[in-house]
């Protein structure tokens, strides 16, 4: 249960942003599923469809979506409600399986995995950030951040160290003992980001991350995303806000279950378009 994890973690260069290199690329207790190399795209979705229901009540949420996301990219998936973006997000997040089509996460075919392995993939490869934070109540920020590591089988001391580092990265070192109901919305979302980061996932998947936040907190979160992407993290954001999409290197629009627009705003290997290069940590440490 303690072989070093190579491959996807090698791409993590966000250590350059500060204290993170102490835990970036830490050995996980077990290698992730399937073969994975740095050469593979993070996401490879081909002709994915999703159909709900049967007969008259059939809903075709996705009607053949193909999408490739390279390592280090920052993609915003946009679309009105009913466009299928939530379904796509569930499939990307391994919370749901496509009806047809293939989905490779870091080179591994997710469609072929059983429930136990899917849970492990969610744990190791994907960091979730939800609109409604989804922190577990009555658990301190630290315990919340430690949780994915606990399910990943990391030892307690190691867990604590990495969780504290992740909380430090989002500027919440002084709030580790607070419970979610003692934190502001922005702070809760930063705890959620720390929780998503703590396992050093291949992909950071955010579903309307700023949907429940005021403008200041929104700026904070987006600055963190910019900085993480600058550090090499691959990020996919589901949003319907243009302000959020403006931060992404690439914007994909969905309509009626199909991709209708795929526009690149900045090169994959460059910095995100709106990154604040002068003060990468400033936005967070002020609060």
């Amino acid at each position: 249960m303690s072989s070093p994890m190579n491959g996807p973690m090698d791409g993590d260069r966000y250590g350059s942003a500060g204290s993170a290199n102490r835990w970036a690329g830490e050995p996980m207790s077990e290698p992730a599923e399937g073969p994975a190399t740095t050469a593979d795209p993070v996401l490879l979705i081909r002709d994915v469809t999703k159909v709900y229901g049967e007969g008259e009540a059939t809903v075709r949420a996705l009607r053949g979506v193909s999408l490739t996301v390279e390592r280090g990219d920052y993609v915003a998936i946009m679309g009105a409600s009913g466009s299928g973006k939530s379904t796509l997000m569930n499939i990307i997040g391994c919370l749901d399986v496509p009806t047809t089509g293939t989905y490779l996460l870091g080179g591994a075919d997710v469609g072929a995995l059983d429930e136990v392995r899917l849970a492990r993939v969610r744990n190791r490869r994907i960091g979730f950030i939800f609109q409604s934070f989804n922190l577990i109540p009555r658990m301190s920020a630290l315990a919340n951040v430690e949780l994915p590591l606990a399910y990943g089988g990391v030892r307690a001391a190691e867990r604590r160290r990495r969780a504290l580092a992740a909380l430090g990265l989002v500027g919440l070192s002084d709030r580790v003992g607070h419970q979610p109901n003692e934190l502001s919305g922005g702070q809760q979302q930063r705890v959620a980001v720390a929780r998503a980061l703590v396992t050093s996932p291949t992909l950071l998947l955010a579903d309307e991350p700023t949907g429940a936040l005021d403008s200041t907190s929104t700026k904070d979160i987006l600055a963190i995303f910019d900085r993480l992407n600058l550090g090499g993290k691959t990020i996919v954001v589901i949003t319907h806000e243009d302000d959020v999409a403006a931060h992404a290197k690439r914007v994909v629009r969905l309509m009626d279950g199909r991709i209708v627009d795929d526009r690149r705003q900045a090169p994959v290997d460059g910095p995100p378009p709106l990154v604040d290069d002068r003060s990468p940590t400033g936005a967070m440490s002020e609060r």
């Binding site: 849970a119 969610r122 744990n123 190791r124 989804n134 929780r195």
Partner: peptide, 16 residues
């Protein structure tokens, strides 16, 4: 239920 969903989303196996 929601808490269970969160735990599962961040990778809690069924056994846990």
């Amino acid at each position: 239920t929601r808490e269970i969903g969160i735990r599962k989303a961040i990778g809690a196996p069924r056994g846990a």
